[in-house]
Design a protein around this nucleic acid. Sequence first.
RNA 1: GCUCCGGUAGUGUAGUCCGGCCAAUCAUUCCGGCCUUUCGAGCCGAAGACCCGGGUUCAAAUCCCGGCCGGAGCACCA
Length: 508
Amino acid sequence: MARTSPEEWERRLTEIAPELLAEIGAKKEPDKGLPGLEGSEGGVVMRFAPNPNGPPTIGSARGIIINSEYVKRYGGRFLLRFDDTDPVNKRPMLEAYGWYLEDSEWLGAVPDKVVIASDRLPEYYEIAIELIRRGGAYVCRCDQAAFKAKKDAAKPCPHRGQSPEENLALWRDMMNGGLGPGEAVLRIKTDIVHKDPALRDWAAFRIVTADHPRVGEKYRVWPLLDFESGVEDHLLGVTHIIRGKDLMDSERRQRYLYDHMGWVYPTTIHWGRIKIHQFGSFSTSALRRALEAGEYSGWDDPRMPTVRALRRRGIRAEALRKFMIELGVGETDISISMDSIFAENRKIVDPEARRRFFVKDPIPMEIEGEMPEIAKAPFHPTLDLGSREIPAGRKLLVSCDDLLNLKVGGSLRLKDLCNIEISSLDPLRARVIGTDPHQAREKKLRIIHWAPTDGVPVRVMRPDGVDSGIGELGVRDDLDQVVQFERYGFVRIDSVAEDEVVAYFAHR
RNA sequence: GCUCCGGUAGUGUAGUCCGGCCAAUCAUUCCGGCCUUUCGAGCCGAAGACCCGGGUUCAAAUCCCGGCCGGAGCACCA
């Protein structure tokens, strides 16, 4: 296949239309980070709208970070809105409201405004009434199955033709108790013969007599998501909505509501489902059940895919931000690995994390020969972070893992201390053959870390279990710091007691 | 069954709207090598992808059609 080269075309272009040449020269610029927002001229208002039925997860973090990042970029406003309108199936947790605030702030996304749907029922009622007056909504008294049958057949139900007056009267019955749960819903009139059955006359309000954790039994008519969310987005002046692809129909449904009211629909962006290798698929409700069944120590258990669990493990907000922004907002369902987040975190944490010795599954070792009584070890291999002194002694502890390929006569270096030769394996004995690190280097000795016998017991809480061992005493100075246990990994010192230190494992 | 959306290396991602700069970007992962008193960091190098088939065109990752695969909606959940 003979292709005409670009050069050839350029030459011919020069002959026939030289004024277009500039266009060829213009390079396309590669987009960095998030794509721009369309329709940002009139300002940008965005929201993250969770149901507070558990703490923010990594998925929530994506929503919080991307929305707030756009707002930062365009100088707009970031709203946090709690869509807590189902006291039964997705019952809100009172503590969770605060958790969202806390985690948003930690993620560097302090909301400009916080809205709680369960505070705003009166506003929703007013709009419902206006909608009925305009003939855009009707009270449907079909039971669920009957309506579905009608809808699937693209046939209107008998209540669709009621007059606004009739509907208003029935609405009052819903409000004042004349109608009970399951006896009526308010439906938005869309297009009953629409080719997509998902869009036909959807329910906007239903009757719920259960108490709500925040407002108790104050209301008995509650909005459904499409109404609440759609109305709030308008009321709050939201300009851009980012939501899951699973909610694509919401826009198409809500547009009917907007048309009835004469409102302008915000710009929408969709993203696909996010799955994380290390955690699999999870839902907040499923996690909550597992937690209540005692499978986890709490919402910040190191196995949890929550923001608070990552924080406890020493993952920095900045690492999460960079990662999420890099992910972007594609519509493809994605399956990510924590490795990328860890890599991002390592870059941030490595330069500031003090190095410490932690010996997992310690084995005592007796040493003979001339050696320093105190090891002087730098806090960082290349940066000047100072150093610490670790008292050594005739007896030291080394990790069981490091003994695996050891044999009598073999030699290695105890880091920052001395070079030894193994003289016996059981009991473990060695003799000093020198102290010079260069000697170790020349002989290509393996270098292992160690701990003094009077070090502090350390427990490391990991996603895959608990490691126990002994750490140098200095780890007690690093409460709440991310440190690197040499040859083990980065951990956050979570608690320090006289007789035990607990650390949470971040990553290698 | 009806409807909607997506498919670029192992994993993500840029490019797709407005076809030529794309023998395709960046990150991570993996594999080599260097460096290092850590199995960390750093440095160097390498490997690795346009779902398939047609069509339009001088030219297709990009436009059109069909197929395949994946996800989602059709709740008085969010």
